[in-house]
Structure formats: structure tokens, C-alpha cells
Write a protein that binds this DNA or RNA. Structure first.
Lengths: 160, 160
DNA sequence: TATTGTTATACTCTATAACTATA
DNA sequence: TATAGTTATAGAGTATAACAATA
């Protein structure tokens, strides 16, 4: 027991940080910005932004999801989803339906056009990722995704 | 030869993207934001921001580096480093010295106080990373950092 | 009292254009 | 002409406060 704890303690301090490049967070940020530039470029052809794609895919993947639920899932503020939804709605990608049991919430459902467009956007970004991560093998990409998911997922509603 | 190529082709398409969560970039972004919140919180106690830390550490790690060189290394605009340097200079963390052979450039050198503060900031952020990445083992953290570094490093001056 | 959708607003970060001085 | 440092400004992205309607 105590031996195991001791080993964990030692292991926790095993990662030595001497320079900026040693920080995981720094590399995380640089890689994320690098990737984001690619995603923005890939979505330019279809007049979309990464956040809009995330919102549309949330509606497609969870039919009937509400705006507030999307915000909680994506980690964004309720106020900021309003113009995003307005544009997606104007382009005919989803419909709003009042919840019968709770008049406050609007249930969102993707149209066929919205489903097609969302799938197209996702494919464009996924294709671009082949370039962005061309230095990594498929196995390395899967592992990277798995490691990243473990960092932020199940982290609770508010960072922690 | 052609068999190898075929296998590579197959491998490139092996990573299947059906949902938003399948995108590496999405997980990259979420993990980066999650980490950044921690870094910002860790640096609040010393009145610093992540970018200011990166700039100060650049000066410490490369004595005599110029502002333009820092910008190229960190991937930021020259215009945006001005207020960052102004604050670091005002706090006495580095000195400017005109380059003798080129009067346009200023060589930047950290003071002892600046070196101490930079090391302190780095330690604070590194300590925070132990929380941020507590779900990953030390080996996984090193591998993550290695994978991330390969994504953005040696990517040329302008994304690619 | 709490939540949804919304508006308005502020703040941060980043991007662009232009200027000067030097090369 | 090209670059360094600088200024001013514009644009995203995100955050906060408040509101009406509903629970």
C-alpha cells in the first residue's frame, strides 16, 4: 500500500519541466492552433466556422437537444450560441420545436439538408486532418485522440 | 513496393470519423482550453498571463533574442508583443540593448530578477499540469507531449 | 428561486495597415 | 526593397449582466 503510494509520488514528479517546450500545455496550445487554422481553412469553402460545425453536429447527433444543452456539452456560453443558431436556422439546417412539457425550451431537429451539410463539413475537416497530422501514423493518431479525450472528458460541468 | 504503398493508403483511411468526438482537432481544442484555464489560474497569483510567460521564457532561454525572433518562434504578430514586452520591462525582468551591427534590432537580456520570476512562473504552471493531466501516467504524458510536438514543430514559418 | 432563450455589452486575443528608422 | 519596432485599429471569440417567460 504505502509502497504503491510512494511509487506514485515518485512517478508524479518524474516529468521534469525545465523549458517552455517541456510544458505539455504549450505543445497542446501550439498543436491546437495549428490544427484550428487547418479546420478554418477547410470550412471556408462552405462558409462555416468550427463552432458552427460543432453546434450543427450536436443537433444531428442528438435530435431534440436544446440550446442550453448544446452549450453545456460544448463548453460555451448560452449567450454566444444565439447568433450561431440564427445563422444555421436561416440556412435551413434545423428546425425549432417547443417542448410540450416545458415551454421554456426549444427542441432542435436537423433537417435533411442540415444532416447532409453537417456530414459534408465533418468530412472536409476530417480530410484536412490527414494533412495536419500527416507526421503521425494512424495508430498514433488514435492514441493521441484517446489521450486528449481523457484529459477533458468527464471533467465535470466546470473545469475540475 | 506497390504493396507497401497500398498498405499505407489503407492505413491513411483507417481512422474513421463519424462524429464530432472522432475529430482529433475537436479533442485537441477541448483539451487545450481545459489546460489553458488551469495555466491562467496558476499564473493569476503572480499577475502573469500565459503569453507573457512564454515571452519571458524565450528571453531567458535565448539571451539576446529580438522581439521579432520571439514572435516567429511563438507564432505571434510583432504588433502584439509590444505591450507584453512593455510590461515585462516595466517589472524589471529584462533589458534592451541595441544591436551594434544593426541599429534596427534590440537584443533582449533577462535580469536576475527576470530569470527567477520566469523559473517561478514555469514551476507554477508545471505544478498545475500535474492536476490537469492527473488521469495520464508520466509515460503517457511524455508520449502526449512528443506527439503534440511532432504536429506543430518543423511546420515551417507559416502553417504547413 | 432556478432555468431558458435572448439582448446588450465588455473584455481578451489576434490580425491588418501603416508609419519611422534602419539596412 | 526589405526588416525591426511601433501605433492604431479592426475583428474574432469569449464572458458577464440583465431581462421576460416559464417552471
Amino acid at each position: 500500500m504505502s509502497l504503491t503510494n510512494q511509487n506514485d509520488q515518485v512517478e508524479t514528479r518524474e516529468v521534469c519541466v525545465r523549458r517552455l517546450d517541456d510544458l505539455i500545455g504549450y505543445n497542446l496550445r501550439r498543436a491546437s492552433v495549428f490544427d484550428l487554422l487547418g479546420a478554418v481553412a477547410a470550412l471556408e469553402a462552405v462558409n462555416a466556422r468550427p463552432v458552427a460545425m460543432s453546434v450543427l453536429l450536436s443537433i444531428i447527433e442528438t435530435p431534440g437537444i436544446s440550446a442550453a444543452e448544446i452549450c453545456r456539452a460544448l463548453g460555451m456560453q448560452r449567450a454566444n450560441i444565439v447568433p450561431v443558431l440564427a445563422e444555421l436556422e436561416q440556412r435551413g439546417f434545423f428546425l425549432r420545436e417547443s417542448d410540450r412539457s416545458d415551454q421554456r425550451v426549444q427542441r432542435l431537429f436537423a433537417t435533411v439538408k442540415g444532416e447532409e451539410e453537417g456530414a459534408r463539413w465533418l468530412a472536409l475537416v476530417a480530410e484536412r486532418e490527414n494533412e495536419t497530422f500527416h507526421r503521425l501514423t494512424p495508430a498514433e493518431r488514435r492514441q493521441l485522440r484517446s489521450l486528449l479525450a481523457r484529459i477533458w472528458q468527464e471533467s465535470g460541468p466546470k473545469q475540475g
